[in-house]
Nucleic acid binder design. Structure first.
Lengths: 180, 180
DNA sequence: TATTGTTATACTCTATAACTATA
DNA sequence: TATAGTTATAGAGTATAACAATA
């Protein structure tokens, strides 16, 4: 409150620059989502990032470390530390790929799979809270449209992460990526 | 390409955890937007952040530094450096508020206002490119829904940034915030 | 006493480069 | 030669704490 009695009004860039605020809007949403989800995952090693790795590692075809780095858009040099901590916590283990002994497949332990199952409900609840302030139709439109936009952006650089089977279903593209 | 001939497939967390991928989706979109816009603004001091400050400073009621920090969700201690560089580049200036001499209003110079006008077109073009991969209806749905969601999240903590006049119009809320 | 702005410092996260082992 | 993984180091960005000026 200033001495002139006015609120310290900070104008949005939106006013003069239609479109230039999308980054602000996305930042708000991503920050809100991140805070809500992190609060539910802060006790596992590296929080959300550890959870994401756990989620990918739980798949039938476990990822390599460079595969994880590309999928999460992080540098490969951060993964040894993170995965060490997950290994020490007994949540995942490194398995040398018998077909190429340079690669280590990251797979969940039983404890890791159990933790993943427990927390995914909490994550969904946290997300529902974040989106709970808008009508269901808006929420659904947001989830659908953002998924399509993300797919469109991501598929511009498919070499980064060849797995788009699930999101691909959104646009009707076939999910078979084995030949790419 | 592995020796087994398969692509190094990295499964999406989406497969098993419906909803848990929203952070991934938003990250892709925000990253794409950020990269495209930053490429157009990299020659101004502090890139996108400098542009955002310039955009807010161009308003009739110029922001204080703490107001800027709250609006951009950054710590107030980063602003002196950024604003110093904008001042040295001749784009903004600090004006002591006559009503409260502790505050400095950040206002654009003529050169700053000129640069802002030039670049906002480039920013819009960059954004149009990012969203150019989806049909117009999806793009519009995305812009509308994300704006509403951001408003809903942001209005949970109105003390952080009392200015919501423009986004408020999206939901039909009246834009008068002078009494909050 | 509270708040704006500032500075110095420390911390976190990330990127760069170099190394090994496998292919 | 090229790639997966690792390690050490350097850098960018950010936060913490203390201070001066003003209310």
């Amino acid at each position: 409150m200033t001495s002139s009695g006015e609120v310290d009004r900070v104008a949005l860039p939106t006013d003069d620059i239609p479109g230039a605020d999308l980054g602000w809007v996305l930042g708000i949403v991503l920050r809100g989502w991140h805070e809500a989800v992190d609060a539910v995952l802060e006790d596992l090693p590296h929080g959300l990032r550890g959870f994401q790795i756990l989620a990918v590692a739980a798949h039938e075809n476990p990822p390599t470390q460079t595969g994880l780095a590309r999928h999460l858009h992080i540098d490969k040099t951060v993964l040894p530390y993170v995965i060490d901590d997950l290994v020490n916590a007994g949540l995942v283990e490194r398995r040398v790929d018998p077909n190429d002994r340079r690669m280590r497949r990251i797979v969940t332990t039983d404890a890791g799979a159990r933790l993943l199952r427990q927390r995914k409900d909490a994550v969904e609840r946290a997300q529902a809270d974040v989106l709970g302030g808008v009508p269901d139709a808006v929420r659904d439109a947001f989830l659908d449209a953002s998924g399509r936009v993300a797919l469109s952006i991501h598929s511009t650089k498919p070499y980064l992460d060849p797995c788009l089977a699930v999101l691909g279903a959104l646009t009707g593209a076939e999910g078979d990526l084995s030949k790419r």
